[in-house]
Write a protein that binds this DNA or RNA. Structure first.
Lengths: 195, 195
DNA sequence: GTCTATAAGCCGATAGAC
DNA sequence: GTCTATCGGCTTATAGAC
């Protein structure tokens, strides 16, 4: 697969956009700032992206798979019964949340910021990402033979998003652990009912 | 208590700010737009508020009690065992969420938008509001003799915030009902363990 | 209603690769 | 000599503030 030098430039721009948009939000970051961070001129940025919205969409697209991989990594690194491994996802998020640059879930924050334009491509990208997480959870839960895996998976994503949202307000990782406890409880409950 | 005409003007401004900031977000709304909506000049607005941030703080302060009252109203209007009444809070939110102008939780959305300034007065106001909701929930749960009411109350606020956050992404009230189901399950579980 | 700063987006030009 | 990728500077609009 050919890889021109412009692909490398494009990557640098997306990386800069990722750092700035995730760190400060969309409307708080100018296109000039992204260009400067990427070490290029605005003209070059507009050569690679049609608009700022285009750049935002590219930023979110670049985070979809890595985000999902992170969750899967937390889960797969854990051992023990299923509720404990699900709880490990939350513990993993809590560990990440202790870092300085952590600013919650970029997908949720963009959906919050673009609330007045629900049809925006970035909001759709956020929805697609969240659906992927929910589907992935339903699959790993169903694989363990738990009844109503879809229902429990949805409750768990609600707790994950609740943890992300609450963190923006309180900046206290204890809430993430509480969400993990709740998720483990709901899962154990569903498994018990199935018996 | 004396009530000058300037208080009435201030109220009009806060009302306009509420409508616009809640509907579109903070950075998406200009001070000009708020002044125009309030039917005054920008000069008058800046006589009553030192800055836009000041206005944002006043907007959030005006929503604290009404928001809490709404949750309490949903709860008190419901009947039956405690889990059913807690679930009624979520059903009430779902009903509200069906309206056109509903845009999730204004407190959460502001915390998301102001993520780069965690010490901002508006973020602190959001934190105070969420703490009030959590404390209120813990009290009504403890009043029913449920053990570990604090723990369950926290899990329920996580589900409420999860429902608010998820709605911004999916715009599907079914998620709010799922959160209500989870809250009722967790509560029934805690009550059963106490027996 | 005026001021100053800054936003998004566009134009003309050019250096090197093939 | 055409194509790709880049640059510096410019325009128009709108922001917050007084």
């Amino acid at each position: 697969m050919a890889r021109s030098s412009s692909d490398a430039t494009r990557d640098r721009i997306v990386k800069a956009a990722n750092s700035l948009f995730y760190g400060k939000g969309i409307r708080a970051v100018s296109v000039d700032a992204v260009a400067e961070k990427a070490g290029i001129t605005k003209k070059t940025l507009y050569y690679h992206f049609r608009s700022k919205d285009d750049l935002v969409a590219a930023y979110l697209a670049s985070r979809d798979q890595p985000n999902l991989d992170a969750f899967a990594g937390y889960f797969e690194a854990a051992q023990g019964p299923l509720p404990a491994r699900i709880r490990a996802i939350f513990t993993g998020i809590a560990t990440a949340a202790r870092h300085r640059r952590w600013k919650g879930c970029g997908f949720l924050r963009i959906a919050a910021e673009l609330v007045d334009t629900p049809g925006h491509p970035a909001v759709k990208a956020a929805g697609a990402h969240k659906k992927r997480v929910e589907t992935w959870l339903a699959e790993i839960i169903a694989a363990e033979g738990v009844a109503e895996a879809d229902r429990v998976a949805r409750q768990i994503v609600l707790l994950m998003d609740g943890a992300f949202a609450t963190m923006l307000v309180h900046h206290d990782v204890a809430y993430i652990e509480s969400a993990g406890d709740a998720a483990a409880t709901l899962l154990a409950n569903a498994a018990r009912e199935a018996r």
